[in-house]
Every structure is written in C-alpha cells, then in structure tokens.
C-alpha cells in the first residue's frame, strides 16, 4: 500500500464569473521513503497540490488517501489532527513565531498533540540537534540567519515524527550556500526513511530528489525517476501545449 495516493484530484476556484482550474485531474502515488521534487512554472498547480497533500485544503473532487485514511472526507478538526500527527510542513517563509525561542517554536506541534512539558522538551531538543542547532535552542528568530530559521522550521516539522515531510519552496528565500545546507538536511532525513515531497522551481534543488514530477496547467506532465545529482531537464514538450513557451 502506498503511503499516499491521490486519484483524479480537482481544485476549482471561482473568482467572480471565471473558474480557475488550479488542479485538473491529478493522480499520484507516493511510496514510503521516496524523495520527490514537484516542479513547474508558477500557476502550474504545484502549490495547490502541496496544500491538498498537506491537509491544509480540501479538493473540489477526487480523493486523497493518506496512510489508508481518506483525508478528503475529513472535517476541520480531523484535518487538524492529521496535520499534527501525519504531516510535517516546511514553508518558503519559515513561519516561525517571533519573540519566541527556537526550542519553543519546535515544541508548538507537540503542544497541540497534548504531549507533556518534559517530553516536549526532550523531543524538541532532539529534533534541533538533528538539524544541527543544538547550541542555539534559546535564540529567537531575529537572532538567526535565514538558513538557521529554516532549520528550526524543519525541526518543527519533524518533531512529531510524521513520516511525511512536505516542503513548499523551502530554499526560495535562501542564498546558494544556505540552500545547499538545507538540502543536505533533507537528504539526511531521506536517508533515515522519511518520505519527502518538495515543491521547487530551481533545477539544482530538484537535482537532490530521486523522483521528479513536472506539472503544468493543473496536470501532471511527466513523472520520472531521477538519479540524485544528475542534471534536471524539463520534459520534452508536447507540441500541442508548447504554444507561447520560449
């Protein structure tokens, strides 16, 4: 059984009179332990797909099964619970709580999971040590570099040991050196068996992944295995869809 499976997923936004088909029939299956990069230009629907996979949003139609549970049928409370237990999310903008120490930021998901204070501390320390911030637990976000902040965010995403890590442009706000550092951590997590799905438009970031999914106009354009480290190329373009593309 795959870790997650989406079948014929549609997401349609209505803006006034016009319908925007952000996802138009996406099907995808992810096995446990995979390291996938979802690529595509902006507006291709990759962020929408990410939000649906992250249980932050519900599809217009189609279904989504995560660890045998039909997430697309869950209510708001159950979705919150799923986000808490099954999924770790890393954002482009870090989204750390200001004026709050790294340790307390990492503890946040455990707070909503009802974990006791002592256990929260222990697990948060461990997560921070894993991302190499064992010596900065008391620092506040404004005392840290972008790369360090994103590492705190990764620690927060993995502290509940969710099994699935979703990252939406995790290096989008970082310079090359910090990007490399972050991808190194993803690589390390992947090696421990964590399933990782990340969205990016940078080829050298996607190059770390072992499977690459290209999206365009709400469809999956190609879905191929990839040798980590080898260059990433856009798929051969279907002449029918190539109009206007340079």
């Amino acid at each position: 059984m795959p870790l997650l499976e989406v079948v014929d997923l549609h997401k349609i936004y209505t803006m006034g009179d016009t319908e925007v088909r952000a996802l138009d029939g996406v099907s995808l299956s992810v096995e446990s332990g995979e390291f996938i990069a979802v690529m595509g230009s902006s507006g291709s629907g990759k962020s929408t797909l990410m939000n649906l996979l992250g249980c932050l949003d519900r599809p217009t139609s189609g279904h989504y099964v995560l660890r045998g549970e039909r997430v697309s049928d869950l209510n708001r409370d159950e979705l919150a619970n799923a986000r808490n237990r099954l999924i770790g999310f890393v954002f482009q903008g870090f989204h750390l709580l200001a004026r709050t120490s790294a340790l307390e930021n990492v503890e946040l998901p455990l707070l909503y999971a009802g974990v006791s204070g002592k256990e929260r501390h222990r697990r948060s320390r461990k997560a921070l040590e894993l991302v190499g911030l064992g010596d900065r637990m008391d620092h506040h976000p404004n005392q840290m570099s972008g790369g360090q902040q994103q590492r705190v965010a990764i620690a927060r995403a993995i502290v509940t040991e969710p099994g699935l890590l979703l990252a939406d442009e995790p290096t989008g706000n970082l310079d090359t050196r910090n990007s490399h550092e972050i991808m190194g951590i993803f690589q390390k997590l992947s090696d421990t068996g964590m399933t990782i799905v990340l969205v990016t438009h940078e080829s050298d970031v996607a190059a770390w992944a072992r499977r690459i999914v290209w999206m365009r106009d709400g469809h999956v354009l190609s879905d191929e295995p990839h040798e980590p480290g080898s260059p990433v190329h856009p798929p051969p373009i279907d002449p029918g869809l190539s109009l206007g593309v340079p």
Binding site: N81, R85, H95, L97, L108, A113, T160
Partner: peptide, 16 residues
C-alpha cells in the same frame, strides 16, 4: 493572522 495560520498548519484545531 499568519501566526494563527501557522498554528493551524501544525495541528491547532479551530477550538484551540
């Protein structure tokens, strides 16, 4: 608002 969004993303239920 962003803080609320983040809290929800990491598992806060509406009632929390």
């Amino acid at each position: 608002t962003r803080e609320i969004g983040l809290r929800m993303a990491v598992g806060a239920r509406p009632r929390d």
